[in-house]
């Protein structure tokens, strides 16, 4: 090593080291400027949204009475809405995550190629359905269908607090909203998971198979460990969509004001979500009520921000462990 060190001519002390710059070409300059500008626009837009929400929302933080739908203060108001938002999202994820991982595995590992490709397209199509359509379908078909099930649940499983009823025969409950959300989240989680599953190194899959692993054992030994961080971030992206989804929930869910904080999933008295509440209350809102709604939007913004950061932290941590 020392020979290479001495071989290299060093600039004499006191003189600045010669900077070697590649000649600037106009094409490079223009493209760099364009892409840099595009990146900046994202930052500016995000900052703009954050500033708007904060400035317009701050007056709402001190509101009371009618502006906060009769609640004691903004904290109680926002807390109740956050509860409904999280409940709907959690229901959606509990249903969607295992289903999506299963579908992704079918597409990447179980189904023959002839079936897997069209199946993948079909699931991607689910993501292309507008949320208004999901909302209509939720009210007119799925909700009614679920209504009958809720009656049955109340009659037979009513001792479980989740199903204590009285059952909403129209089916416009938080559970229905959560299930519709699940359907909207499934394509997101499935698409990401199947990409990652398909990228699992053949080397590791063959290592498991050569030891005499069955298909499922191979998936547990090779695919899941490799895909773990990706599965977490897929779920978090799904959670982001479930938290923010407005139209379908606003249409399906029957709740007024800040709703009812309950774990009873099948009644007509439901919690409300932040996004649905903003969509439904905004047309009639004036003055301070508008600030209150914007402040609740700020709360939602912070929650989704936190979810994204948590997802990144988890991905970064497990990524580090995999490379260790």
């Amino acid at each position: 090593m020392s020979s290479t060190d001495t071989a290299k001519p060093r600039p004499p002390k006191g003189e600045p080291p010669v900077k070697r710059r590649s000649p600037e070409r106009p094409g490079d300059k223009i493209f760099k400027g364009l892409s840099f500008g595009a990146a900046m626009i994202i930052l500016v837009a995000l900052a703009g949204v954050a500033i708007f929400l904060t400035v317009e929302g701050i007056p709402g933080l001190g509101a009371s009475g009618g502006a906060v739908a009769g609640e004691a203060n903004f904290l109680v108001y926002a807390g109740r809405l956050v509860y409904g938002t999280l409940l709907a999202a959690v229901i959606a994820l509990i249903v969607a995550t295992p289903l999506s991982i299963g579908m992704a595995l079918v597409i990447s590992h179980y189904a023959p190629r002839r079936l897997a490709t069209p199946l993948g397209y079909m699931i991607d199509l689910l993501a292309a359905v507008p949320s208004v359509v999901y909302g209509l379908w939720g009210i007119l078909f799925f909700g009614r269908f679920m209504g009958d099930i809720y009656v049955w649940l109340e009659a037979n499983l009513g001792f479980i607090p989740l199903f204590s009823g009285p059952a909403a025969t129209g089916g416009r409950t938080i559970l229905t909203a959560g299930l519709v959300l699940a359907l909207m989240v499934i394509p997101i989680i499935t698409a990401i998971c199947r990409e990652i599953f398909a990228q699992t190194p053949t080397l590791h899959q063959e290592a498991a198979l050569a030891l005499g692993a069955t298909r499922w054992e191979m998936i547990r030994y090779a695919v899941f460990p490799y895909a773990k961080s990706g599965m977490v971030s897929a779920t978090m992206l799904g959670l982001g969509r479930a938290l923010g989804e407005t139209m379908a929930v606003a249409m399906v869910l029957s709740a007024s004001g800040t709703g009812v904080m309950t774990l009873n999933l099948i009644t007509t008295q439901n919690p409300n979500t932040i996004a649905a509440n903003i969509a439904r209350s905004f047309p009639e809102a004036t003055g301070l009520s508008v600030n209150v709604l914007i402040a609740s939007g700020l709360v939602l913004f912070l929650i989704t921000f936190a979810v994204n950061f948590a997802a990144r932290a988890i991905v970064a941590r497990s990524g580090k462990r995999l490379n260790a």
Binding site: H204, A207, L211, G212, L322
Partner: peptide
């Protein structure tokens, strides 16, 4: 494959497993 073992061109220990667990991977199957 349980009776006829195989070693591959490139070493392929399971990346998330310890040395100990890697050795036992085949024994823990089934």
């Amino acid at each position: 494959r349980r009776q006829i073992g195989m070693v591959f061109q490139r070493p392929n220990p399971f990346p998330t497993m310890s040395i100990y667990d890697n050795v036992l991977a085949g024994n823990r199957l089934n």
